[in-house]
Design a protein around this nucleic acid. Structure first.
Lengths: 152, 152
DNA sequence: CGGGAATAGTTGAACCATCAACTAGATTGT
DNA sequence: ACAATCTAGTTGATGGTTCAACTATTCCCG
């Protein structure tokens, strides 16, 4: 039960800016995707990961890890996406427990449309308003965070 | 309907690291606060803002803006906090529509306990694992994001 | 003053995430 | 081979968030 090592004033300020800014930014992206394309951020993320996978398909567990979602959440989200016709499930031949999530043509098209708008929002509210060197710093920093988290 | 200005490879990598890292980090903080102190991040944020206000109280609207929450969400969250005895509502004399959210003694004590653990998590998973200059960059960058968002 | 517009805050319903419990198939050890 | 255990994925209940609708009060202005 040692004394906590409090943040100093400048750390406090920077941390607070990050918390507030990222909350507001996520909110904005969420509303934007939802109103213009009927997708939540987590649905969007799923589509992105699938689109980057070979044959546009991934095993559920891999997809969950990839998109930083719990398996349960992925299952629900995937059902929603399936009922919208953007994804379909196939079962895996080699492992009868296994399920592939497969991006449909329609899903790919929806993603392409959404991505165009999305990248514009990301530029307009983050990338174009900060110093390029600061974006690199952000990448470095959160890369380190991921490495730290992965190790635990 | 112009061509979207896609991100280049390095922007893409940095942006992705940020998205993944911040999702995972928030998740971690959430679970930590919830298991150790029975508080969600948004409840915690409310307590923090109140603790920083004069007399430990704020008008609902101001508190909502401060904590980047919708009024509706604040209303619900506040009710929960109230039923836990951490906050109480007082109505405002000068504006009969107005309501003050007031941090209770118990609420302040709970916050103090939670903050000790919380700062440790933030250090261990972000501040202590990144370059101090990168933290400053993060602060600068998200400060700019907030400024951009505030202007819209 | 008085009536319309704006503001403060709450409420309930629908929606999404989380957690624990569950089914079914694979793996391991003896 | 077979029981114990582990992994893949789903499901349903619970609780938090969002959205639209609502009440009550204040502000604005002719």
């Amino acid at each position: 039960m040692s004394e906590p090592r409090w943040l100093d004033a400048s750390q406090q300020r920077d941390w607070r800016a990050y918390v507030d800014g990222s909350v507001r930014l996520t909110e904005l992206m969420d509303r934007d995707l939802k109103t213009k394309h009927g997708l939540s951020v987590s649905e969007y993320e799923i589509l992105v990961r699938l689109s980057e996978a070979p044959d546009h398909r991934l095993r559920m567990a891999e997809l969950a890890a990839n998109a930083s979602q719990s398996r349960s959440r992925l299952s629900h989200t995937c059902s929603r996406l399936e009922s919208k016709g953007l994804v379909k499930r196939d079962n895996c031949g080699t492992d009868k427990r296994g399920v592939y999530a497969q991006l449909t043509e329609e899903g790919y098209a929806a993603l392409e449309r959404a991505a165009r708008d999305h990248v514009e929002v990301v530029r307009e509210h983050l990338i174009d308003v900060i110093d390029p060197a600061d974006l690199e710093a952000i990448g470095r920093a959160f890369g380190a965070v991921l490495k730290r988290l992965g190790a635990s």
